[in-house]
């Protein structure tokens, strides 16, 4: 079979020869890549089935082993689940730094670019508030592949990995945010315990649910803050070189 592919290669000199490999197969994926590359000298790798329970070995060692770049990643059976591969973003995701860049980009594809920029700026300035959160929920709901998208928000990925997320899961959160005043949405620090009680009543939620949502939101903001620090740190290190 490989001989035949090599014949096709010789006959039509392709611009790109992409080697497709199932990321679930780990070390085997790497060995197969090596065999194909020895024979075909392909130009890039496509990792598939990243939506499955893959441990990461293939993604981490293919480039090292065959010295060919991963060009695309495929994570689902639907036709829009293809992404260009960015090593740095993947590294950030692995470290739970979220993937705000990808999130912003996905949003840009379908929504107003201007708005996405504003959001990124707010995150950088640590001004992310409930109004932004709500706007994001609205957008995310329309984007499909909910859990994946949520996983890209810094600090959220870990919390949702065992949760089955459907659109309904957002209804509670939305109810809570809807029961806040515009001032409260814009200034989360304003929300003290008596305000929380009022919000709980207004949204028909338990006070503990409101509290735990507030806490999660706080954690998310904390993560964003850390991420900002990390980025600034990266720049300083860059200058010293």
């Amino acid at each position: 079979m490989m001989a035949e592919v090599a014949n096709i290669k010789n006959a039509v000199s392709p611009n790109e020869i992409l080697f497709v490999v199932d990321s679930m197969t780990g070390q085997d994926a790497v060995n197969t890549a090596k065999a194909f590359n020895d024979r075909l000298d392909f130009s890039g790798v496509v990792l598939t089935k990243l939506d499955g329970d893959t441990r990461g070995g293939a993604a981490l060692s293919i480039k090292y082993t065959v010295n060919k770049p991963i060009k695309f990643i495929s994570s689902g059976e639907k036709m829009d689940t293809l992404d260009v591969f960015y090593p740095d973003r993947m590294a950030q995701r692995i470290l739970g730094m979220g993937d705000i860049t990808s999130l912003v980009e996905k949003a840009q594809e379908q929504f107003d670019e201007e708005q996405a920029k504003k959001l990124e700026k707010k995150i950088r300035k640590n001004k992310f508030d409930f109004a932004d959160f709500k706007a994001q929920l609205e957008q995310i709901k329309k984007m499909g592949n909910l859990k994946d998208l949520m996983g890209m928000i810094p600090g959220v990925g870990k919390h949702i990995k065992d949760i089955d997320i459907s659109d309904d899961s957002f209804k509670g959160i939305e109810a809570i945010i809807n029961s806040m005043t515009p001032q409260e949405r814009a200034d989360p620090d304003l929300i003290d315990s008596s305000r929380r009680r009022r919000i709980a009543k207004g949204s028909g939620k338990d006070i503990t649910e409101v509290n735990s949502f507030m806490k999660q939101f706080e954690q998310m903001r904390e993560m964003m803050k850390n991420m900002n620090k990390m980025n600034m740190f990266g720049k300083t290190m860059g200058m010293r070189k």
């Binding site: 790109e16 591969f85 960015y86």
Partner: peptide, 27 residues
């Protein structure tokens, strides 16, 4: 280091030509 291990920079994709030919291979 993880980013480096996975390839460092984003790579290019060549779809220029008339036609550009992309060959797709694998198990």
């Amino acid at each position: 280091e993880l980013a480096d291990l996975m390839g460092g920079q984003e790579s290019s994709f060549d779809a220029k030509g008339n036609p550009a030919v992309i060959l797709i291979a694998g198990l």
